[in-house]
């Protein structure tokens, strides 16, 4: 197993978000983590890269327990993990090219020419060739997401974590982003975890889907399996029927 969260608990103040969250992500797959807004999907994702520390439980990346790592070791792990933020989180004082090159500048021994070549390659992969000199403010929402994805994959990471990659996008751009996610897996062989509440996206991009409910993983299975499940809560969510999910009534 390449990514593993075991019995993770996390609370913010008196609000318990994760209550024994356990999930394993297999090498080479894209797993969609679905769940209602505020259920803790992004919180779970941030644990994988060490942006949040669990109150209890363990997070393992490539056989290394995140809590045991020194800061320099954590940065080594992070070089293997790309993170695509919900609102792209591009550095607005930098050009797109400088944004994409940021992670590359942390790799020892990379020359400026190699960095520029990798920036061009990453932008080509997300269908943004020639956007190096533009600023984030000059991009549309979909272009920002793609630039954020280019930044995440520039270091050729083994894993890419997507935090709601299609939220707020029009249907066409959503499909473009979903296809890019699939392309990342096929062309770069990345293992992906995508947090989403968009079921169309989840069906399109994911090999497996996990549903987070009440702080725990309620269901894990393939897109075909989740569509056949008899679990009322899961069915209620994927079919948009609140009457099946108790707390929405």
């Amino acid at each position: 197993m390449s990514l593993r969260l075991v019995e993770v608990h996390k609370a913010f103040g008196s609000k318990q978000i994760l209550k024994g969250f356990t999930l394993e992500v297999r090498e080479g797959e894209t797993l969609a983590l679905i769940g209602a807004s505020g259920s803790g999907k992004s919180v779970a994702l941030k644990h994988i890269i060490g942006l949040l520390q669990p109150d209890a439980g363990e997070v393992w990346v490539d056989g290394r327990r995140i809590a045991d790592l020194e800061r320099s070791e954590l940065y080594e792990v992070r070089r293997n993990v790309g993170y695509v933020f919900q609102f792209a989180a591009l550095f607005d004082s930098m050009t797109v090219g400088e944004n994409v090159g940021m992670g590359l500048r942390r790799i020892p021994g990379m020359s400026e020419a190699e960095i520029q070549e990798r920036v061009r390659e990453s932008l080509r992969l997300v269908d943004l060739p020639g956007f190096e000199d533009r600023y984030p403010a000059e991009l549309s929402g979909g272009q920002k997401k793609r630039a954020g994805l280019a930044r995440a994959i520039a270091t050729h990471p083994k894993y890419v974590l997507y935090d709601e990659p299609t939220t707020g996008l029009d249907p066409l751009t959503k499909t473009v982003i979903d296809r890019l996610t699939i392309r990342m897996r096929k062309e770069l062989n990345v293992t992906g975890v995508a947090v989403t509440h968009d079921m169309d996206s989840a069906y399109r991009m994911a090999d497996r889907i996990a549903m987070l409910h009440d702080g725990r993983v309620r269901f894990v299975g393939t897109p075909a399996e989740i569509q056949k499940t008899e679990d009322r809560v899961v069915r209620g969510f994927i079919e948009g029927r609140p009457e099946l999910v108790g707390e929405y009534q």
């Binding site: 942006l51 993990v81 790309g82 933020f85 995440a152």
Partner: peptide, 14 residues
């Protein structure tokens, strides 16, 4: 608030 500081972290910057 725009997660740019988190982005720095994910890119292995302190």
């Amino acid at each position: 608030v725009t997660e740019q500081i988190d982005a720095l972290e994910t890119l292995a910057y302190d």
